[in-house]
Amino acid sequence: MKPLVRTAALSGYVELCRTLGIDPQALMKRVGLDTAALTVQDRWISGAAAVQLLELSATASGHDDFGVLMAEFRRFSNLGPVSLVVREEPDVRSALGLLIRHQHMYNEVLHARLSEGDGLATLKVDLQIGEAMEARQATELAVAVFHRILRGFLGAQWQPLSVWFRHPAPADTATHRRAFGPMVEFGREFDGIVFYSDDLDAPNAMADPLLREYARQYFESIVVPKDDTVGDQVRELIEVLLPSGRCSVEQVARSLGVDRRTVHRQLASSGVTFSSLLNATRMDLAEQFVANPRRSLTEISDLLGFSSLSAFSRWFSERFGCSPRAWRSRQSRQKRPGQD
């Protein structure tokens, strides 16, 4: 089954369309949706249809910043029931962690994850739509919503160290810089937000300690457990551990609180191995990193946990059929004609 999103994911859509002079009903009809559905926030609709709708709307309005503009209509309550308990969490770390842990309750397309290292926190945002399609607007909307949530906790003057997007910059970046600040960058290797880890320890000014337990009890009565596989957990740990040079099945097992045999056995029951997940994760990251000319190949080798640049180059050539330098050059030539 393809992922769904709550209709709340399109909160502000009709209002923004009218502001920009385009017909929301006609556009929604093209993707099989109806504006009447948006009157009930907890109705579930096709995630692919919602993503396609944002792209069509950006084209129809002539606004490459459609997703960022739409985020300005968002309210905390649009997150649904999870917003009640998040509002009462004692600090930003626990609030953000709860939002990420239960993201499937408000958006099955959204896959965000938080990692920390060297005093920095990185919030990466991925969209898993279930089919290949352009998702620039939905990606920018998701990142902008997380940015607004963090500002809600940390204050209107808070600024991240940087906001990154994988896609190229629009012709006019004024809206992005107004929304995110001056450190918004395009053509990077992931979509997300980088900020100081200390920000996660900031107290939540909205929280009422007396209400937290009530909110937790209510939420636990309606929470829908996430169907996380061991493979999903192992893959996330691999991505976190690779740059440290300590990415081994033993280290992953320790992080999961089990022994290595348990990891091997549970992965085998899913038809995968630790080595296959390690290679698949490295390949996904390698494509992102090598495509970015700002990253040196030596730096990429370290980020992917290789002992030397030559070892990385051999591994890359075996899997991609050419050296990382040749692959980067080819990608650059393919992108150039379509860039503004």
Rank of each mutant, 00 (worst) to 15 (best):
residue 2 K to L: 11
residue 7 T to I: 02
residue 12 G to L: 05
residue 12 G to T: 03
residue 14 V to F: 00
residue 15 E to M: 02
residue 15 E to R: 12
residue 19 T to I: 01
residue 24 P to T: 03
residue 29 K to I: 00
residue 34 D to N: 04
residue 41 Q to V: 04
residue 45 I to C: 03
residue 46 S to E: 02
residue 49 A to Q: 02
residue 58 A to M: 03
residue 59 T to N: 05
residue 62 G to Q: 03
residue 67 G to I: 00
residue 67 G to P: 01
residue 69 L to M: 12
residue 73 F to S: 06
residue 77 S to V: 06
residue 80 G to M: 03
residue 84 L to P: 00
residue 87 R to G: 00
residue 98 L to W: 01
residue 99 L to S: 01
residue 99 L to M: 14
residue 103 Q to N: 02
residue 107 N to I: 04
residue 108 E to Q: 15
residue 111 H to S: 11
residue 112 A to W: 07
residue 114 L to K: 04
residue 122 T to G: 06
residue 126 D to S: 03
residue 128 Q to D: 08
residue 128 Q to N: 09
residue 129 I to M: 02
residue 131 E to W: 05
residue 134 E to M: 09
residue 137 Q to H: 09
residue 138 A to Y: 09
residue 139 T to A: 02
residue 139 T to C: 03
residue 140 E to V: 02
residue 140 E to M: 11
residue 143 V to K: 12
residue 149 I to N: 08
residue 151 R to T: 01
residue 160 P to K: 09
residue 162 S to R: 14
residue 163 V to I: 05
residue 173 T to D: 14
residue 173 T to W: 06
residue 174 A to D: 08
residue 176 H to G: 04
residue 177 R to D: 01
residue 178 R to Y: 08
residue 179 A to V: 07
residue 180 F to I: 03
residue 180 F to G: 05
residue 181 G to W: 09
residue 185 E to W: 13
residue 188 R to P: 04
residue 192 G to A: 11
residue 193 I to F: 02
residue 194 V to Q: 09
residue 194 V to K: 10
residue 202 A to R: 14
residue 203 P to H: 10
residue 208 D to T: 13
residue 217 Q to T: 15
residue 222 I to Y: 13
residue 224 V to R: 14
residue 226 K to L: 07
residue 226 K to E: 15
residue 228 D to I: 08
residue 228 D to K: 13
residue 232 D to E: 14
residue 236 E to C: 07
residue 240 V to I: 11
residue 241 L to Y: 12
residue 242 L to S: 12
residue 243 P to V: 06
residue 244 S to T: 15
residue 246 R to Y: 07
residue 247 C to Y: 11
residue 253 A to E: 11
residue 255 S to D: 08
residue 256 L to E: 08
residue 257 G to H: 08
residue 260 R to F: 07
residue 261 R to V: 11
residue 263 V to R: 11
residue 264 H to N: 14
residue 265 R to G: 01
residue 266 Q to P: 00
residue 268 A to R: 15
residue 269 S to T: 08
residue 277 L to A: 09
residue 277 L to Y: 04
residue 280 A to M: 05
residue 281 T to N: 11
residue 281 T to D: 04
residue 286 A to D: 07
residue 286 A to R: 12
residue 288 Q to Y: 07
residue 293 P to M: 06
residue 293 P to G: 07
residue 294 R to I: 01
residue 297 L to R: 10
residue 298 T to E: 14
residue 302 D to C: 05
residue 320 F to G: 09
residue 320 F to I: 10
residue 321 G to S: 10
residue 323 S to L: 10
residue 325 R to F: 13
residue 328 R to V: 05
residue 333 R to T: 06
residue 335 K to P: 02
residue 337 P to C: 06
